[in-house]
Simulated assay, not measured.
Amino acid sequence: MKTHTPPKPRVALLGAPIDLGASLRGACMGPAALRIAGLEEALRERGFDVEDRGDVAPRTPAPQVSGRGERARNLAEIAAWARSLSDAAYETMRDGAMPVFLGGDHSLSMGSVNGVARHAAEAGRELFVLWLDAHADFNTPASTPSGNMHGMSAALLAGEEGLEEVFGDEPRRPIDPANLHLFGIRSIDRDERNLLVARGIDVVDMRLIDEHGASVLMRRVLERVAARNGMLHVSFDLDALDPAIAPGVGTDVPGGLTYREAHLIMEMLHDSGLVTSLDVVELNPYLDERGKSARLAVDLVSSLFGRQVFARGPDNALAPALPTRSAP
Rank of each mutant, 00 (worst) to 15 (best):
K2P: 11
A12E: 13
L13A: 14
D19K: 05
D19Q: 10
G26T: 01
G26C: 02
M29H: 13
M29N: 15
G30M: 10
A32N: 11
A37G: 03
G38P: 07
G38T: 08
L43F: 00
L43Q: 01
R44D: 00
E45F: 02
G47L: 04
R53I: 03
R53S: 12
G54D: 07
P58T: 08
P63D: 00
Q64S: 12
Q64T: 07
A76D: 14
A80W: 02
A80V: 02
W81C: 02
R83S: 05
A88P: 07
Y90L: 12
E91S: 07
P99I: 04
L102M: 13
G103L: 11
M110W: 07
V116N: 01
V116A: 14
R118F: 00
A120S: 15
R125K: 14
R125C: 06
E126M: 09
D133E: 05
A134C: 09
D137Y: 02
D137M: 04
A142H: 03
S143R: 05
P145M: 06
S146I: 03
G147K: 06
M152E: 02
L156N: 03
G159Q: 10
E160I: 00
L163F: 03
V166Q: 07
G168M: 03
E170V: 01
P174W: 02
D176E: 11
I188Q: 01
R190H: 08
D191S: 10
E192V: 05
R193S: 13
R193T: 05
N194R: 10
R199N: 09
M218P: 03
M218V: 12
R220D: 15
R224W: 00
R224Q: 15
V225N: 14
V225P: 11
G230T: 04
D237H: 07
D239W: 07
G250C: 09
P254I: 13
G255N: 13
G256N: 10
L257T: 12
T258A: 09
T258D: 08
L264P: 00
L264D: 11
E267A: 12
G273W: 12
S277Y: 04
L278V: 15
V280Y: 15
E282P: 11
E282I: 05
P285K: 10
Y286K: 12
L296A: 06
A297K: 00
A297V: 00
D299S: 06
V301L: 15
A317H: 10
A321M: 09
T324M: 10
R325N: 00
